[in-house]
Design a protein around this nucleic acid. Structure first.
Lengths: 193, 193
DNA sequence: TGATAGTGCGAGCACTTGCTTGCATAACAG
DNA sequence: CTGTTATGCAAGCAAGTGCTCGCACTATCA
């Protein structure tokens, strides 16, 4: 990947993140990349082609691979905190906004499978973790898929809401949220009976 | 609101839901509404004006008011299930897609406050519910805002993920998810020690 | 020195965008 | 019957869209 192409991709992805695919024009991209417009079409087949090259780059993907979750301690509390922290560290507001910017009918069919890889990686890693915890005798048999979905949904939900509304919805910090959520997941809501 | 204007609004909102604001053209709207294009501009000031009229209609808003949560039993399990069920009954995939379609820089500043009302209503209702549960002696003092955020995030997250990826991410049904999640929230993840 | 590849530049293509205009027609109320 | 209102229709506007072309310039490598 030569320098000019990379500049074009970076400019494109930033603009799509900020304005969405349709609202991002090729003249816009050229200007942002500091490159003449016709250069875009010398390097890439079309505007769409730039996007597709971009989403295939690690740089513009939530680089969320199962390996990230390797240093587990086989203790529910620190491990769940680690899972949630690693997710939020990688799936930044920028990434969330980009995923939304890519939701244009013209490209969504091709970008959706890539976008979906991130939640899939998280979910399957978490489910697998629970299974291993069971094998190690630390968990009874449960519906681990459903449990993983609950924890992932709350992680994803918080990430998305923070990216969308920042502090306007809730002032709770990421660390505070993770700590309290994990406590709830493990001990449940304490009740007085 | 005369019939023609309503047809225009409905066509516009449907198209924005499916293609996003920028990709929805006025010629598109006119055709879908079965109306001549110039009629749009006789009824409304601009394309943007149609949208703003639309988002103010209950029909095109997740009609989520605090009153919905009134038939509480003051029992954690059925109440939380009710909260989540009512949310998901109203915030349909269509509504989720529409909220995303409205995220264009040209209109977001004006639509965001309206979009945000839905999560705000849910969050504040839930927080208030917890406070009342405490006053009734059923809950110890806790960080109820954070707890509400956890439950709302998992509700929102599941709703959004289902709307985005349908069955491709998880085959868990809404009812199953709600039941299992509430069980986890209340009892915690059972462990063997 | 000379060939090659990469890029800028200006112009422009065919088409679409949101929006407007002038005029004909239909429906309805007085 | 007459005046008003709502709408359709055809045409069109200026601006913008993705994309292309031909030509000039520069850096690099042989």
């Amino acid at each position: 990947m030569d320098e000019t192409s990379q500049k074009i991709i970076d400019a494109t992805m930033s603009l799509v993140r900020d304005k969405g695919y349709v609202a991002t024009t090729t003249k816009d991209i050229a200007k942002t990349a500091g490159v003449n417009e016709c250069t875009l079409f010398r390097k890439f087949k079309s505007k769409k082609d730039i996007i597709l090259s971009g989403v295939e780059q690690e740089k513009w993907r939530g680089n969320l691979t199962p390996e990230i979750f390797q240093n587990v301690q086989w203790e529910l509390a620190p491990d769940l905190e680690m899972f949630m922290t690693e997710y939020m560290k990688r799936i930044t507001p920028d990434f969330v906004q980009l995923s939304i910017g890519l939701r244009a009918p013209q490209i969504y069919e091709e970008t959706a499978p890539l976008i979906m890889k991130v939640p899939q990686a998280f979910l399957s890693s978490l489910t697998e973790y629970f299974h291993q915890m069971q094998q190690r005798g630390k968990l009874p048999p449960l519906d681990f898929e459903c449990l993983a979905m609950t924890i992932f949904s709350s992680t994803f939900g918080f990430t998305f809401l923070s990216a969308s509304f920042e502090q306007a919805l809730s002032k709770i910090s990421r660390e505070e949220y993770i700590r309290q959520s994990v406590a709830t997941f493990i001990q449940g809501i304490p009740t007085l009976t």
